[in-house]
Every structure is written in C-alpha cells, then in structure tokens.
C-alpha cells in the first residue's frame, strides 16, 4: 500500500470495493454479486496524470464513477485533499455534503454523442455547472467564462448558440472538456475520452488535454484501454484485471519493462504501427477469455489464463509488492516468466 501521509497527494483510493448485487428468484432475493472492484488502492499526486488501464470488465470505469459517486462504493475510502490541506473521506459524505466537491472533481465521458443533452445549446451545456456551483456569478460573468472556455478548447464563441447535433464527434468531445473545466476543477476523471474518435482527431484531443493540464494545473485520472495513448499522456500507470490492481509504476517502466504476466501479455498484444517490429516482437497470446466477474476465480484472478500459474495461486490472493522505484507488482512469481 502506498503512503498516504505525503503532502502533495490529491486523492487516495483505499481498499475500494464496489459490488453490484444481482436479484433473482420469486422473492427477488439477492442471488449473487458482481465484484466489479475488489479491494483497490492507489493514490493520485497533485498535477500528475495517472493512467488506469485494463480490458472491459476490469472495473476501471467503475472506479472513476465511484470517485464522483455516480456509483456507491460498497466498502473502502476515497480521501480527497481540500485546498486548505484538510483530508475528507468522500465515501462518508451524503448527497448534500458531496455537492461542493463535485465542482472540484469533474468527469469527461467516453461517448460524446450521449453525454451532451441534445436539447441544450452548447453554451447552456457549459454554463449549467456554473449556475449550480457558482451561484454568486452574474449572468454576464458566466457567459464570459463560457466564451473563454470555448476559445480554450478550440471552438468559436459564435458556436455557443448551436446544438450538439451540429457538431462532429471530436468537437463534441471538446464541448465535454469545456464543460468539465467550467468549475475550476482540481481533478478531472477522463473515462476513455478519445476511444470513440477517429485517429486524426484523437491526437488533437490528447494535445488539448495536455495543454489544458499545463495551463490550469489539472490532475487527471485517465481511464482507457489503449495502452499507447495511456503511455503517452500519463506519468504513472495502474494496470487492472478483473477488479484488482495487478501492477502500478512509472509509465516508462510499465511500458518497457512490465513485470506482471498480465501486463506483459497485454502489452505484447498491442499491435504497433510498424511492420518491421512484427517479427522481432515476441507475442504472448493468452488462452481463453476473461472470466465473468460473477464467478471470479479464487486466489489470484488471473491464474486461469496465466502461463506461470501454480497450485498456490488458487489459494492466496497476491499482495502488491514494491519491487523498488515505486513499482508495485501483484505476483510473487513474476521473475519466473521468461519470454
């Protein structure tokens, strides 16, 4: 577990569990639980970009959503550091107490088509968070800020009166970014912000996010499945598998020297846009599929697909061990995997 006393830690997630109950039978009793997030701890330092990667169903989006309380955590703490240095456990707050923190923690969603209200003009979409969180602002001030934000994300002021359907996917994602920035957030949770966009537009949005991060001093939790994009934008990466963290480290270390067998398989599976590397690269193709989070394997969740699984893996849930330089690996046998 990482140290939480550190002063510049903005948010720390401690032993977070999110279980979704499944009801069935005649009496609509709880028959099972989907363990979407199963004991996850990590922290985000002020000003950094933390990448959260994993395949579908690993719980990465659920973590993002539980930080802004769009889903209720079952267990665990999410500790946010206020501007004055006080730490607040967001999980213990009720709806009303949570409200001021929603201005500090904003979210950018994956699908720019469904995350904007089609009946609002984009000016109103960006203005709405200000009406809620900054009641002292006059209408003129709000509108000036909307104009400023539109310029910042590369749109025109005149476009404020248009509706979302008049914009392309990349432009809508810019609107989503402007909306997230309207309340001066300190932490932005970007949930797959570029995966719905075309290749030539992806680079534009990534650059925009980086520019805005520098300008506004944002801290970003970047949730994505595209490892090349995550490596580019993040300073540290958290790799998840089936609700658990399997590896945390500096993005260079994770990308070039992954330790956990799952991270290694994940990286070797990413196709690189260079045909010359095709023959050099050793591919590690995993057997089988990700098990359903309803029937999670005992012990290490990855053992059913792991090339170096041992009988002991079924019994013990591996700890995240520090192997130096802040690099944490949840596999005691990682040294045995040679490719």
């Amino acid at each position: 577990m990482e140290q939480t006393q550190n002063n510049n830690i903005l948010l720390s997630v401690e032993n977070l569990r999110v279980y979704f109950p499944i009801y069935g039978g005649v009496f609509i009793k709880k028959v099972a639980e989907v363990k979407a997030v199963d004991g996850v701890s990590f922290s985000i330092k002020e000003g950094e970009t933390l990448g959260l990667v994993g395949e579908s169903g690993c719980g990465k989006s659920t973590i993002g959503k539980s930080i802004v309380r769009l889903v209720e955590p079952t267990q665990g703490n999410i500790v946010f550091t206020k501007k004055d240095g006080h730490k607040v456990n967001l999980v213990s707050l009720n709806r009303k107490e949570m409200r001021p923190f929603r201005a500090d923690i904003q979210m950018i969603f994956q699908d720019p088509y469904s995350s904007l209200n089609p009946r609002f003009t984009i000016g109103r979409i960006i203005e709405e968070p200000l009406e809620i969180h900054c009641p002292n602002m006059t209408k003129q001030e709000r509108q000036n800020r909307v104009k400023m934000l539109l310029n910042k994300v590369g749109l025109n002021e005149e476009q404020a009166v248009r509706y979302p359907h008049e914009f392309s996917g990349g432009q809508r994602q810019r609107v989503g970014i402007a909306r997230a920035l309207s309340t001066h957030p300190r932490l932005v949770i970007a949930d797959e912000p570029v995966s719905a966009l075309d290749v030539s537009i992806q680079a534009q949005v990534i650059n925009l996010l980086q520019d805005l991060q520098k300008e506004f001093g944002l801290t970003i939790l970047f949730v994505a499945h595209n490892l090349a994009v995550v490596e580019h934008i993040s300073s540290r990466i958290v790799v998840m598998y089936l609700g658990n963290v399997v590896e945390i480290g500096q993005s260079q270390d994770i990308y070039h020297h992954p330790k956990h067998p799952y991270s290694r398989a994940l990286l070797s599976a990413v196709p690189l846009p260079d045909p010359a590397l095709k023959d050099q690269k050793k591919k590690m193709i995993l057997k089988g599929e990700i098990p359903s989070p309803l029937a999670k394997p005992s012990g290490c969740a990855f053992r059913t697909r792991c090339p170096i699984a041992k009988p002991e893996c079924a019994q013990n849930i591996p700890n995240l061990d520090d192997i130096g330089n802040g690099h944490l690996v949840a596999c005691p046998y990682w040294k045995e995997l040679n490719l």
Binding site: G170, Q202, A203, V229, H256
Partner: peptide
C-alpha cells in the same frame, strides 16, 4: 505521425492533422 509511439523517443506533443473529416 499522429499515432502515439511509446516504442520511440517520447514526444511532448503529438503532431496532428488540422481540422476534421
């Protein structure tokens, strides 16, 4: 050029194609 290439030397900014389709 606009693809992030972690296997190469890290660039601060990605070169982009301006505009959109």
């Amino acid at each position: 050029k606009s693809l992030p290439r972690p296997d190469r030397i890290k660039q601060d900014r990605l070169p982009t194609i301006p505009g959109m389709v």
